[in-house]
Design a protein around this nucleic acid. Structure first.
Lengths: 178, 178
DNA sequence: GTTTACATGTAAGCTGTTACATGATTAC
DNA sequence: GTAATCATGTAACAGCTTACATGTAAAC
């Protein structure tokens, strides 16, 4: 899902600014998508030009807050983009990349990687738990529960079986360095 | 982890061609990284120019198989790249993006998304189970077990709690369309 | 024979990040 | 008063995908 569609997605729940979209993406979509400001502003310009969104209030002063509203055409476009989604998922994991080459790392680095991953997972877990489930559609709740299930499994692995494997990695590294 | 480092990673286990690297990435690294041929060949050229890898056999005929070998400098570079990894992970999920906007979809689309995701997860599960764990380092085994734990949790969620939520989505969509 | 897999490489183009440039408003 | 947050926008650059262009070798 590209940045433009993500913007439409945020705006489908209410009017906001470019900056507000970035925050909303971070708060609501982080478990399945990302968007930086440098991508959001050009995307908003394109969407406005294409009639999918409009500026309400139009300050026309530079550096002033511009609030966007989705148009019916924009809603249609969002629905089309949602229908065009497939069941794929890709993971980009510096964590696993590092662990894959654990035999080239120091033990400290291996422990740091695992600790950082656990911290990241816990943070994400906290964030998801803090979202107001009552105010959501069933679809939104679905994505949160799915992510929670996956995160819980990852934490569980790292805290139980993971520790044992890290010990094994240390043993292996030790013996191969001798 | 960029494509160049992925190439070094493959070559650290043995000499092969650009085409062979793509296959190896697909077979061994798919759970945490991706690389297409259009990215691999330029990366190999840069790595060769930088002295991190060398061509062995050098056919010099165009369109002939060129086998690459990692140099000691390349091994150092791989080790540095591994040590530079952090504990982060990002998910790009057209699946969850679609489900998030389930209220804009037909029931068929929702079922298709879930079915496709389950099929993808099962395929990945099969691939990981088929890898020869005996011939691996502890680090490699770690990444596989971690991914297996996460995948199993995702499948479990989709087959149990997931079904109920899909039914709830259908109920919600039905009532909001009336 | 013909399809599939193997094999290399280039180039256009898309998408996105980071850094830059600028300034207002709010909280402490 | 000063630091953090809010706020917009541009531009350089990175990185990758897809399509193009070409051809060989093995399997069926």
């Amino acid at each position: 899902m590209d940045v433009g569609t993500l913007c439409l997605g945020v705006l489908s729940f209410g009017d906001t600014s470019g900056y507000g979209i970035r925050k909303a993406v971070e708060d609501w979509f982080r478990h399945f998508g990302q968007a930086s400001l440098g991508a959001i502003y050009p995307a908003l310009a394109k969407l406005t030009a294409g009639g999918a969104i409009e500026v309400i209030g139009a300050p026309d002063a530079p550096l002033e807050k511009r609030v966007f509203r989705i148009t019916p055409a924009g809603r249609q476009r969002l629905a089309d983009a949602a229908a065009a989604c497939d069941g794929s998922e890709t993971v980009r994991s510096p964590f696993l990349a590092g662990m894959f080459f654990a035999h080239l790392l120091t033990m400290d680095d291996v422990h740091r990687l695992v600790d950082e991953r656990i911290a990241g997972l816990r943070g994400e877990q906290r964030r998801l738990r803090g979202l107001p489930a009552e105010a959501m559609t069933e679809g939104q709740r679905f994505t949160i529960r799915y992510s929670q299930a996956v995160i819980a499994a990852a934490i569980n692995f790292l805290e139980h079986e993971g520790r044992a494997i890290v010990t094994a990695i240390e043993r292996e590294n030790l013996s191969s360095n001798q």
